[in-house]
Structures are given as C-alpha cells and as structure tokens.
Amino acid sequence: MKIKCNKEIIRKGFHVVENVISGSNVNPMLQNVRIVAKDNTLELSTTDMEVSVSYLIDSVEVITPGKMVGPETQISSIVKEWTEDSIEITEENNKCIIKGKDNFFKILCTDSDGFPTIPQFVDDEYIEIDKDVLLDMIKKTAFIILGDKTKHGTSGVFLEISDNHIKMVANDGRRLSEVKKKVENSHGISKSCIIPIKGMLQMQRIAGEQTDLIKIRIEEKRIFVKTKNSTLCSQLLEGQYPKYEEVIPTNLDKKINMDRNAFTSAIRRVSIMTTDEYKLLRFKFSDETLEIKCSSPDVGESKTVIPVEYFGEEIEIGLNPEFLLDFLKNVDSEEVLLELKDHGTAGVFRVGTGCTYVVMPMNLGDKKQV
C-alpha cells in the first residue's frame, strides 16, 4: 500500500476516528486503526467492539492499493504534528512508513486479518436529518447522562422515530429532558432504542464534521449514523426505557416567562453560598417578580430579585441550581417558560419548539439538601 495525501485532509479523518480508542481496553488489536487504500480513496476505521467509526477520504492519490493495521495513537500523533503540506504513507513488510521531504517515521504494524470486521451501513429503512437539528437534540439531552454522578438514571439516551417525528429523551431520576423534532420519514419507520453515552458522543463528533443531511438507521441491536464521509455503528443498550411520560406533570396552572440570561445570572449569584452538602435555592414567584434565596448553615445567606412575566398567586419552590444551570447553558433561546403547580410538584421548563425539561423539587424544610 502506498498513498499521498494533503495533511489537512487526513488529519480531519483521524480527528473523527481517534476517540473510539480506549486506553483501558485489554485487547491490543483494538488500539489500532485500519487503513484501506483503493480506487483513489482512503478509509480509516477504529472500533472497541461496541462503537465503530469509519472515515472515507476521497481526495487521495493511491499509488499502490492495499491495507494495513497499525497503532492509532502513534500514527495520528505523527499526522497531527506534520508540518509539510503533503504526506506519504506506505506499508512494507508489516511496517508503516510515513515520510515527506524533511521527515521520516517507521512504525511496526500488525496483521490486518486480525482486525475486527466493521459493520456496514445498509442503504435502506433510514431517515435523513439536518446536522444542526441532530446536534441540537444531542446537546439538550446528553448532558444529563454525562453529569449523572449517582448513576440513578438510565445510562443512555432514548431515541424514537415514528410518523414524521424524531425524539430524544434522557433522565437521571431527578431531572429529564425531552426533545422532539419534525423529520422526513419516507420509509414509514416506527422504531426506538437506547443509545449508550459513548455512541452519543461519537454521533455528535461525526455530525459536527458534516455539512449535509445525516442518515440514521436503527437495527435490532445497533444503530448506524452515516454522513458523506463518516459511518458510525454503535451497539444499543438492552431493556425497555422507563415510562418517562408519567414523570412529566400535567395541569400546571402557573406559567412564568423569564429572560434566560437574567435568570442564569441570578442563579449563579445566589448559588455562591451553596456547598457540596447544601444545594437548595428557594425560588419565590409573585406579581412580575422572582426572588431567589439561599440560606446555607455553613456559609451564609444570599438573595437576588429579578423581573419576570408572572401575574398569579405567590408560589415558592426549592430547586437544585446545578440542574438549572446545566439546562440553561445548553439552550440558546432568549426566553424560557417555567410551568409550576405547587412546591411539591416537579417544575417544567419549555424552550422553543419541542424541548421540555423537568426538574424534581427539593424539600423546603430540609436543613441539608444535595
């Protein structure tokens, strides 16, 4: 195998596939990248047996077709640090030779036949979704799983395709985010699955490299996400996703519109007085006013007042500021709508079209809140 390629093009490919590699994997073969050169294309592939990613480079000079399997960390590091415009990669006698005018590297490789088979995308029964829509859905859900230190929730994101909608849901037992968007569903697909967080992060990574529509195909035990150059295959989590709809309260008669930036800033100011053992903030809504207070027994007190659009009876509820800030920094609308019923019922935030965020209340009478 022998190819020549622009360094920036191949560098982009390694950026897409490198995060699949896990240093904790005991199988040395899974520390490698497979490189296949044919028909003036170069395909890079990595896998940890649960998540696989391939990236196809279609602007390569293939001098000699072939394939090789070599250590991803060393090869990608060389590519990242390459200073010349063009890079030449050759496989000779199980060695990867990378050279240019002023640089030369020779890396020991391994038998390519031992590399696991990478699942292939079947161009059937899929939906297409705009990359910005997909990235927005991931952003508004995956943060819950990433921030779940207690592991009380489901360690994956629920994805459902039905009619002309696609939906993502994440929860950790104390908060829940649901995002629903319209999508073309010409194949009439009606399927759902639970995607592990590593699969979600890789989906986010390859979508970020894309400019066109993205294809999503759900199979019985795995999901495929395909762009023009990248293909992701992730194993799915087994089991049924909890009936999360039961967590979303109804008949919420108190509705408060707030400026997102002002609300975020107020929470940050007051939460300066919180500690790891005490996370309670008290939110009191009255006519056109929100008062946020914290009375930490080990630190002190804080209070701030901001204007809001609310004209109902006075209501106070206790909420965890970290859960609110996590949500607020992952949305970009100017306003947020909060719907409440009483101090013992979960609060529901709504942003834009199709985004719902549910936060369980904290007991206002407890002396310690975490």
Rank of each mutant, 00 (worst) to 15 (best):
K198S: 06
L176A: 01
K131S: 12
H165T: 13
V157R: 01
T141I: 04
D136R: 11
I189K: 00
G173L: 05
I197E: 07
Q120S: 13
G188D: 02
T117H: 09
K149N: 11
N171E: 15
D113G: 01
L159Q: 01
S192H: 15
D113L: 07
N164G: 03
T117K: 12
V133C: 06
K139E: 14
S112K: 11
E178I: 07
D148K: 02
L135D: 08
E184V: 13
E125W: 07
I197S: 08
K191M: 01
G147V: 02
K181P: 05
E184G: 10
K106E: 15
E125K: 10
F104T: 04
T150S: 13
I144P: 14
V169F: 01
G188Q: 02
K167Q: 14
I144R: 09
D113H: 06
K198I: 04
L108N: 15
K131R: 15
C109D: 12
I127F: 01
Y126K: 00
C193H: 04
H187W: 12
R174Q: 13
V169D: 03
V183H: 03
L108R: 15
L108T: 14
Q120Y: 09
C193Q: 05
C109Y: 09
S177T: 11
E160N: 13
T141M: 03
N185S: 07
F158H: 14
V157H: 00
I144W: 11
G188S: 04
N171Q: 15
K167E: 12
K139G: 09
L108M: 13
K139I: 12
K139V: 11
D111H: 11
G147E: 09
F115N: 02
P196A: 04
S192C: 14
T150V: 08
K151R: 13
E128K: 06
I189G: 00
K167L: 12
I161K: 01
T141S: 07
S155Y: 15
K181M: 12
L108I: 15
F115Y: 14
S190D: 07
N164Y: 12
E160V: 07
I144K: 08
K182Q: 08
S162T: 13
I127G: 01
E178N: 11
I195G: 03
H187N: 05
D113R: 10
D123P: 06
D163A: 09
Y126D: 00
I127K: 01
D123G: 02
G147T: 08
H152L: 14
L108E: 15
I118F: 02
G153V: 10
L176E: 08
F143S: 11
I138A: 06
I197Y: 07
G173V: 04
K149A: 10
I127C: 01
V133I: 08
K106R: 15
H152C: 11
I194R: 07
H152T: 12
L176N: 04
S186R: 11
I145C: 02
I166R: 00
M168K: 05
I189W: 05
L134R: 04
D113K: 10
G156V: 10
G199W: 00
E125D: 13
H165A: 02
D132T: 12
G173K: 07
G153S: 14
S192G: 11
N171G: 12
M200D: 06
R175M: 11
S112D: 14
D123T: 00
H165L: 03
R174S: 12
G114Q: 10
V179Q: 03
K131Q: 13
S112M: 08
V157N: 02
